[in-house]
């Protein structure tokens, strides 16, 4: 069974003004990035996946359950959504309580919830801040707390809305580690993001939305090699990929590591060739 099935979904906030048109795809465990410029319908799509909105046309199935037959609060056991602005959710005056709020809502016992919350705080490297007031921490730390407060619910599907925004290099590294950890734990990780370097380094599959339509859906490598299609949707591939294009490589790379190993092997080849001549 697929974790997510989106079937011919269209959505409009007001009559006939469709922000999503006839979208279909299925997702299994792994990592998917949904990209597209502002107004492409990314946020709407994510709200549909979370059951916060219901499709006007078509259906969204989460683990086989139609979102029309359930509520967002009930779906919380299966789908976790980390919002872009942590200030939209934080209301407890202790970090640990904030992270325990979700687990308690979905019926975990207090002990269970505390255990899960502490584990989640460990994952985001904020264990030592568990007794502090969230509003005494920096925005990027609050963002990690909002991530922990979803991880503690231990859902099969985790969705991130712009997790790397307002993060410094330390925070970005944390987010990348969290995504990799969730994927290796067999979860489905979905992100909407503008940070292409983040996509290139952490995501296997990429879905491109443009003006409410599904423009591309494929492996990150395939999607980012189609620079023309991307630029029509006002998107740029990761810096590393851009460099590959500028150097006229026949292959594109998405992460510094893959570029380095390719370059090194070619440099060696060239050196041995030069030596022969």
């Amino acid at each position: 069974m697929n974790l997510v099935d989106v079937k011919n979904v269209s959505f409009a906030y007001s009559e006939n003004n469709f922000v999503l048109q006839n979208i279909s795809f299925s997702l299994q465990k792994g990592s998917v990035a949904i990209i597209g410029q502002n107004g492409s319908g990314k946020t709407t799509l994510v709200k549909l996946l979370k059951g916060l909105l219901k499709p006007k046309v078509g259906d969204v199935f989460i683990k086989g359950i139609n979102t029309k037959d359930t509520t967002a609060a009930k779906l919380a056991k299966t789908v976790g959504l980390v919002f872009q602005n942590p200030n939209d959710q934080i209301f407890k005056n202790k970090v640990l309580d904030e992270v325990m709020f979700g687990p308690l809502n979905i019926g975990q016992s207090v002990d269970e919830a505390r255990e899960n919350a502490l584990r989640a705080l460990e994952i985001v490297s904020l264990t030592e801040k568990s007794q502090e007031n969230p509003y005494d921490l920096s925005l990027s730390e609050r963002k990690l707390i909002s991530i922990a407060s979803i991880l503690s619910m231990n859902t099969d599907i985790v969705i991130f809305d712009e997790p790397t925004i307002a993060q410094d290099c330390w925070g970005k590294t944390r987010v990348k580690d969290i995504v990799r950890l969730l994927v290796s734990a067999g979860k489905l990780v979905i992100t909407i993001t503008h940070d292409m370097d983040f996509v290139g380094e952490c995501f296997e599959r990429v879905i491109v939305l443009n003006k409410g339509k599904l423009l591309l859906d494929g492996s990150a490598k395939d999607v980012f090699s189609q620079e023309d299609v991307l630029s029509a949707a006002y998107l740029e591939p990761p810096y590393i990929t851009q460099l590959c294009h500028q150097l006229h490589y026949d292959e594109v790379f998405l992460s510094p590591e893959s570029f380095i190993s390719y370059y090194e092997s070619h440099r060696q080849k060239k050196e041995t060739n030069d030596a022969k001549h």
Binding site: C169, Y239, I240, L243, P256, F259, I260, Y263, E264, R267
Partner: peptide
């Protein structure tokens, strides 16, 4: 100091 240089500098340093 918690700063990563531009990605071009990172790969150049490694190579």
């Amino acid at each position: 100091f918690g700063v990563e240089p531009p990605v071009f500098t990172t790969i150049a340093k490694k190579l």
